[in-house]
Amino acid sequence: MISVEHLSKHFEDLKRGRVYALKDVSFEVQPGEIFGLLGPNGAGKTTALRILSTVLKPSEGEVIVSGFNVVTHPTEVRQNIGFMSGNTGIYDRMTGWELVEYFGRLYGLPEDLLQHRLHEVFETLQMNDVRDVLGSKMSTGMKQKVSIARTIIHDPPVLIFDEPTSGLDVLVARALLEAINSLRTQGKSIIFSTHIMREVEKLCDRIAIIHKGQILAMGTREELAEEHQQPDMEELFFDLIKEFEAEQKAIAAES
């Protein structure tokens, strides 16, 4: 269970002064639900998810993950999430098995449970072929599998996927989406960010459209279609962004 309330994140930029990467963002994710963050590149998706994973600190607002505040109890938060993004690479000089084992130990799994989980995860993800392959020798698909194994080795209640399919071919991407889909049935709270409409349509229970650090619309697919009278997700997305840009221009013109 994830709850984000009035979350803002800003930083100082040489050129533009204070820049908001996130501005007053609020949402909730329930167990057994896949929540989709849909937005173009630079919308603030990665920043939001990095705050959820305690790597970045929020400037304002409150973020509770699995009952723990990310500012006051970062270690407990990290204990209870699995995080995977394009930026969480794997070590070149470690085999798949060693890497997942290493992170399992860092998550504090007792040795016998760890060995059991390792066998289980490697079995379900069908990755016994990468067991003894060094990271540097793996293909992108293999690496992605190892990353997922690392993400779920400690069986966390909350899972965060930040553009997990970027750079993957269709086959691998499909397998990955299936793997994520199967995690829903296990009652996990899952956040999934992407800029690809199709993935959201296929996978997510609820969707938030995010642009320039602000959430433009949020709800189930049906709710969004009804509210904006646009059944086509892609059209809806462009309409919202166009509307937002027009508003911004108007505000800028006024001031």
Binding site: R78, G89, L106
Partner: peptide, 14 residues
């Protein structure tokens, strides 16, 4: 540089 820093940062180790 190798992109493993964030992997390490999201594990529970301080």
């Amino acid at each position: 540089e190798r992109g493993t820093m964030e992997t390490l940062l999201i594990c529970p180790a301080l």
